[in-house]
Simulated assay, not measured.
Amino acid sequence: MKKISLLLCTLILVFSCSSDNEDDSGNNENGTNDLVGTWVLTDLRVDSTTDNDDLDFAKEIIGFLQGIDCDLIIFTFNADGTAVSDSKADFLSINVGVGGLDIPCPTESTTESTTWSLEGNQLTFINEDMEEETITIAFEDGNILIIPGESIDENNYAGADAVFTKQ
């Protein structure tokens, strides 16, 4: 459970629509960065060769919350280079009973702001320690943002990708 909380909290701190006319820098021909917009955590992809119960459980939690229309983590990247994260992860209450998992959607959230820049697939932002940090991201199908687990924590999240969908 501690690893799951750490994963979700880490995702909060990682202030982290493509089109056919996109260049390799993540910008479309109008110079508008494809990262600009609102992104919601919708899935945790776990590599089928990874045997990690904590990652599998985290994936189940995210799937359950998506099924009840509960957005756990939302990133908003603004064109002016600012970003805001809104996360309910710190307020999760996971109950296991006879009927299985019961995870009510938290009503409280934590909001944090930062600045960001994107060079190719390298997202740079100011982390919680007020230090510049760079992670590798990827875009899929114009509305999917992928943050590899290795970019979050190579020791604990290898074999998983955090999947955000553009709203």
Rank of each mutant, 00 (worst) to 15 (best):
V36N: 08
G63L: 05
L35S: 00
L44A: 08
G37A: 06
V36M: 07
S48P: 09
N33P: 02
V46W: 03
D34T: 03
I74Y: 00
D34N: 13
T76F: 07
F64R: 04
L11W: 03
N27T: 11
N78L: 12
I62N: 02
F57R: 15
G63I: 01
I74A: 04
D34P: 00
S19V: 04
I12P: 00
D54G: 04
L65Q: 04
V14A: 11
N33Y: 00
W39E: 08
N33E: 09
T32S: 10
L72C: 02
I12M: 14
D54F: 08
G67V: 02
K59E: 12
L11H: 00
T76K: 13
G67E: 14
S25D: 14
L44K: 06
I12H: 13
Q66M: 07
F57N: 11
F75A: 05
D56F: 08
G67Q: 13
D34H: 11
L55V: 10
L72H: 01
T76C: 08
L35C: 09
C17D: 14
V46G: 05
N28E: 07
L72W: 06
F75K: 11
F64H: 15
G37M: 10
T32C: 05
V14P: 00
D43G: 03
L11Q: 02
N52G: 02
T50D: 07
V14L: 06
S48A: 13
F77Q: 12
F75R: 06
K59H: 11
D56R: 12
N78D: 14
N33H: 05
D34V: 01
C70R: 07
S16M: 02
T38K: 11
N21D: 15
F75V: 07
D51G: 08
S18D: 12
V40A: 07
D34E: 10
C17K: 15
D43I: 01
T32R: 11
S48Q: 13
C70G: 09
I74L: 04
L41W: 04
R45K: 12
N52H: 06
I68T: 09
G67C: 08
F77D: 06
N21A: 11
D43C: 01
I73R: 04
C70Y: 08
T49E: 14
K59Q: 15
C70L: 05
D20A: 15
T50L: 08
A58H: 00
C17E: 14
